[in-house]
């Protein structure tokens, strides 16, 4: 346990053969992740475009239909996700400081918050499906007058569903990080997976921060 900082600086077993040194590997991974995040933004960008097009055509539809969404639970979920972004940042900080215990605790909290987010989402979905607010052709709810209400909810389910899928993937990644951290893989000289998972998690958070006002807070 009593590793000196000198020992850590000289650990090199994490460097893959084709990199010159640790810095190059770290910088490459980070750049790669950033580019991947750009593709993620464009991926969601398609849905945002669909959202914008339909909103431009039927502005009243959005006003009307968003009243069915529960802004209170939306706000709670936003707070939960922002909190998890904070804990993931703290996890990275712990890794940088070589505090492996702190890293693991912070990851646990993040996973916990992500699960809370998904549970709330589950109840939101369940409540809507019960009323008959299902996507597209399965839409049977008659509380809304607008004839295209089904399309609003199609967009809603696609956007939040895809975002939820990203949250689930994030949970998976963080469980994997915890396992690795327990095996003492990470130290202040090597914490690339923690850093890039953190980047990914921030993106998931940012997308929600856009989704929340666009869907829940139209009024």
């Amino acid at each position: 346990m009593a590793q000196t900082s000198v020992d850590i600086e000289h650990k090199t077993d994490h460097i893959q053969h084709h990199f010159v040194d640790s810095d190059q590997q770290f910088e490459s991974s980070k750049l790669g992740m950033w580019i991947f995040l750009v593709t993620e933004i464009l991926f969601f960008g398609g849905l945002f475009a669909a959202y914008i097009v339909y909103r431009a055509w039927y502005p009243e539809l959005y006003l009307e239909a968003s009243t069915e969404l529960n802004a209170f639970w939306g706000t709670v979920n936003t707070a939960v996700l922002i909190g998890s972004s904070l804990t993931v940042a703290m996890a990275i900080r712990s890794a940088q400081l070589n505090q492996i215990k702190g890293l693991i605790y912070n990851l646990y909290i993040t996973i916990g918050l992500a699960i809370i987010f998904m549970v709330i989402k589950f109840f939101e979905y369940a409540e809507k499906l019960e009323k008959g607010i299902a996507p597209g052709a399965y839409y049977t709810y008659d509380g809304l007058e607008h004839e295209k209400a089904n399309i609003f909810f199609s967009i809603y389910y696609m956007m939040t569903g895809l975002h939820g899928l990203h949250v689930v993937i994030g949970i998976g990644l963080m469980v994997w990080l915890v396992i690795k951290a327990k095996k003492k893989v990470f130290h202040s000289g090597y914490y690339t997976p923690v850093e890039i998972t953190g980047l990914y998690w921030h993106l998931v958070d940012v997308i929600w921060i856009f989704l929340f006002p666009l869907l829940y807070l139209i009024d």
Binding site: P135, I151, S154, I155
Partner: peptide, 10 residues
């Protein structure tokens, strides 16, 4: 794909 599976109608 969703159009075919769930008939989302977009």
């Amino acid at each position: 794909t969703m159009e075919r599976v769930l008939s989302i109608g977009i």
